[in-house]
Write a protein that binds this DNA or RNA. Structure first.
Lengths: 149, 149
DNA sequence: CTCGAAATCACCCGAAAGAATGACGACGGA
DNA sequence: TCCGTCGTCATTCTTTCGGGTGATTTCGAG
């Protein structure tokens, strides 16, 4: 949806923008209170947006919920000690899991909303930490070490 | 693990928030242009609800997307029966086993005293018969079907 | 405040993988 | 004998991987 866009200084700008918008909204609210008005339209809009976004998420999930519970017997807890021992990060573990599912780097990037280059960087580090140089080997070793189911 | 300390989808969330803010700003602008007077407020509410419901559905599905489980191993089919069912040959099974060990096509060829091209031909046929197009997927499916340990 | 870890992204380049063909010999059953 | 399967190998082409390097941003610890 949005992953192709790139804004390096997005967060501070957004924070400032939101802060400013919030301030304006508060002022407007107070002003409107002076005029004994109802809530400002912007507030209604935001509330509507928020509420219906949540509703949309719930509805969407409900529509596509699989009927058969898809037997998932073992929740599988990753071997935390091994993770710490070899110094693998959560993100790298995530990439390893997706590699084990047979996804290409591009598909992983699309799934995680990051670029393919980022996925390649992560996978390279995973290979390095696991001491392998091919993804099939990484999957095998990851399973042996209890990093992935 | 510690999912609370990790925000893998921060960027889309920020962009999403920005988009919402922009939409509100646009609506506000329109209102200030007195265009809003031409339409009942309910219309705007409905539009907002619709738009953000769609966005919510999309975002929700996007964030929770999961691939279909591509196989359901039949409990009655033994190794040999599965082999016969999908018509995989002994040689192809051998190549699949070596792929599962993390060997490259060149290494497989050296181990079996055949050319790399031959290995690629076999692996292509294996992929075709298993309905996959990557070796990690082939290994996964081969294990699901009981073709390889 | 400085420093380092983590995550992100980019660019380059060579190697590996995979898709699509075509071909050839051996072997076994109809 | 003819036909089909299997194993073998080649060529061409495109895509994907993997290694290497460098950069930025964010965040938390010291």
């Amino acid at each position: 949806m949005f992953p192709a866009l790139h804004f390096p200084h997005l967060k501070p700008a957004l924070i400032y923008g939101l802060a400013g918008g919030l301030l304006i909204a508060v002022l407007k609210y107070i002003e409107y209170q002076h005029f004994v008005r109802a809530y400002p339209t912007e507030l209604y809009g935001g509330l509507l947006a928020l509420i219906f976004t949540i509703i949309g998420i719930h509805v969407g999930l409900r529509w596509t919920r699989r009927r058969e519970p898809l037997s998932e017997p073992q929740p599988f807890a990753t071997n935390a000690e091994t993770v710490r021992e070899i110094g693998i990060t959560p993100r790298e573990l995530e990439i390893l899991g997706l590699i084990a599912e047979g996804l290409s780097n591009r598909e992983i990037g699309e799934r995680l909303f990051v670029s393919e280059n980022t996925v390649k960087t992560h996978s390279s580090r995973v290979f390095e930490k696991l001491g392998v140089n091919r993804r099939v080997q990484a999957v095998q070793k990851g399973k042996d070490l209890g990093l992935i189911p």
